[in-house]
Write a protein that binds this DNA or RNA. Structure first.
Lengths: 243, 243
DNA sequence: TAGTGGTCTAGACCACGAG
DNA sequence: TCGTGGTCTAGACCACTAA
């Protein structure tokens, strides 16, 4: 790799950051694996350790890498805790969060609707995999979920028996399809429960549900999942901390 | 100030960070004012510039300070843009955000309910100021808001004529009461519109509204405002980006 | 004991803003 | 031109982990 240190060019640590992101993004460094030490990278790139350090620090901040003192620096991987911590925002009214249980109702191939296709940046009517499931919190069904994925990137996902689909799908995406969810954009609205959701969640049809539409993206900002969650918020709520 | 650099003690940059936070928190350095340069601070504290730099960097990350190259480092202040950018999350369905207009309905002293008192960490039944207002987005009334503040810290707020209360209250809190909102915790639920809100927002009574309960805090984590927003989400939504 | 990241230093030079 | 923050270096020593 070539770094340019011309006057007025992009700072070295930024260029190094881009390089590191590229390696992770391309899968050259897999999730969970160790990357070369700061000193090695500095030698290879002909810069000082401090410069590499700054690049790595920003990627640690962005949850791309994790440092472990005495061991090394690793590519972040999606264990259950990360998924729960970063991507699950439903708490009970006492302010605590539990790992949701999960029952998958169906997992089938469909053709993308216009809006799904637009969100996933794939051609109109192309194939998608659609998962329907319901999630229980502390024993009671609380969230009805519809998940839409581009079939091209999730080949044969619909062949997996529904009872083998795990609770935390992002781990599956990573281990089985090599797709790591890095960020997501969520839109929240209040809606009326459909008859179907009402039955699944044990509420009156038409009663208010919190609808969360999430578009999840990889490190290079490619959208790969649309997830619509309809939540009964009588005993739970969505929490967000703002700085 | 004394820094301890004993073996096994808290890192210097952490101690410096605490010191800087204390100065801002105590109002010794007011919002918007410049703080001593990195070099001056380093001299005064007998550390290298790099160490001060690391302390400041983390506070910039936390939105406590802002750097301006060539000018200096400043205490963050709450202009309209900061309030809109960090604390207002309602977008229209095309994904854009506008400065809301605002009509204040009332601003009166009350006695705190048990739950309000608990949230604000003040004695039961102590005095609070209650503001009721409605906010218009692109011309249509979209959000009904109830704001509760501890009267002890917002003396004579209820004496201000309602039509003089500004759109962005956080600026007022800062300039008039010396209280800077630094972070907030939001809880979102789907609720049914009350008759009163329905009339204010021009919707059917009982129709679903997105309820946002925000507890806003100062830099030292003291809760100072409870804000309940009930939003009509037919043409708007709450957005959140997750990493 | 060797190797990793974590803290800290002292000093160089660049880019920006104001006088 | 001067003072600010922004980048980068070279090297010291500490704290942690694993062999």
């Amino acid at each position: 790799m070539l770094l340019s240190s011309e006057k007025g060019s992009i700072p070295l640590y930024m260029q190094i950051k881009e390089m590191l992101v590229a390696k992770v993004s391309a899968g050259e460094w897999a999730p969970g694996s160790i990357i070369p030490s700061e000193i090695r990278l500095a030698q290879e790139l002909n810069v000082s350790q401090g410069t590499v350090r700054k690049a790595i620090s920003e990627l640690v901040e962005a949850n791309v890498l994790v440092r472990r003192q005495g061991k090394g620096t690793f590519v972040t991987n999606h264990d259950e805790n990360r998924a729960l911590f970063h991507f699950f925002h439903i708490y009970n009214n006492r302010g605590t969060k539990f790992m949701p249980e999960c029952e998958t109702l169906s997992c089938k191939k469909k053709h993308a609707s216009r809006s799904d296709a637009a969100s996933l940046e794939i051609p109109d009517r192309s194939e998608v995999v659609r998962i329907e499931r319901i999630r229980k919190l502390e024993g009671t069904p609380t969230i009805a979920e519809t998940i839409t994925l581009p079939a091209a990137q999730f080949k044969e996902l619909d062949q997996i028996p529904t009872d083998e689909l795990p609770n935390m799908l992002y781990e599956l995406y990573e281990t089985r399809f090599g797709i790591t969810i890095h960020s997501a954009e969520e839109q929240l609205r209040a809606t009326r429960s459909s008859k179907r959701d009402a039955k699944l969640l044990g509420v009156e049809p038409g009663s208010p549900l919190l609808e969360i539409v999430r578009i999840a993206m990889t490190l290079d900002a490619t959208p790969v999942e649309i997830r619509t969650s309809r939540c009964n918020t009588s005993r739970h709520c969505y929490r967000n901390t703002v700085f």
